[in-house]
Simulated scan of single mutants.
Amino acid sequence: MSLALTLARPYARAAFALARQAGALPAWSAALATSARIAADPRIAALVAHPGLERAEAAGLVAPPGCDATFLQFLDVLAENDRIALLPEIAGQYEQLRAEAERVVRAKVTSAAPLSDEEKAKIEQALRRRFDADVALELAVDPELIGGAVIDAGDVVIDGSIRSKLARLETALTH
Rank of each mutant, 00 (worst) to 15 (best):
M1Y: 11
S2Y: 03
L3H: 10
T6N: 10
T6Y: 08
A8I: 08
R9W: 06
A12R: 02
A12G: 12
R13K: 15
A14W: 06
A15Q: 07
A15W: 06
A17C: 02
A19R: 02
A19G: 09
A19E: 06
P26W: 13
P26M: 14
W28T: 12
W28R: 05
L32C: 12
L32P: 15
A33N: 12
T34Q: 13
A36C: 14
R37C: 13
A40S: 15
I44M: 13
I44A: 12
A45P: 14
A46K: 09
L47P: 01
H50K: 00
P51N: 11
P51Y: 11
G52H: 09
G52P: 00
L53H: 05
L53R: 03
E54I: 04
R55F: 02
A56H: 10
E57K: 14
A58I: 01
P64S: 12
P65L: 12
P65A: 15
P65S: 13
G66H: 10
G66K: 13
C67V: 14
A69K: 13
T70G: 08
F71H: 05
Q73W: 03
F74S: 07
L75R: 06
D76P: 01
L78N: 07
E80P: 05
N81F: 02
D82P: 01
D82Y: 07
R83H: 10
I84R: 02
L86G: 03
P88C: 07
E89H: 14
I90C: 09
Y94W: 04
E95T: 07
L97F: 02
L97Y: 01
R98Q: 08
A99H: 04
E102S: 12
E102G: 09
E102Y: 05
R103C: 07
R103L: 05
V104D: 04
V104Y: 02
V105D: 01
V105N: 03
R106T: 14
K108L: 09
T110H: 08
S111L: 00
S116A: 14
A121H: 09
K122Y: 00
K122Q: 13
Q125D: 15
Q125H: 14
A126S: 14
R130Y: 09
R130Q: 15
F131A: 12
F131R: 13
F131T: 14
D132N: 15
D134M: 08
V135L: 09
E138A: 12
L139A: 11
L139Y: 08
A140M: 03
E144T: 15
L145I: 07
G147R: 01
G147M: 00
G148E: 05
A149F: 15
V150K: 07
V150C: 01
I151R: 04
D152G: 03
V156Q: 04
V156C: 04
G160N: 09
I162A: 13
R163E: 05
R163Y: 01
K165N: 06
L166M: 12
A167Q: 12
A167V: 05
R168N: 06
R168C: 03
R168M: 07
L169Y: 04
T171C: 02
T171D: 10
A172D: 09
A172R: 15
T174P: 00
T174M: 09
H175R: 14
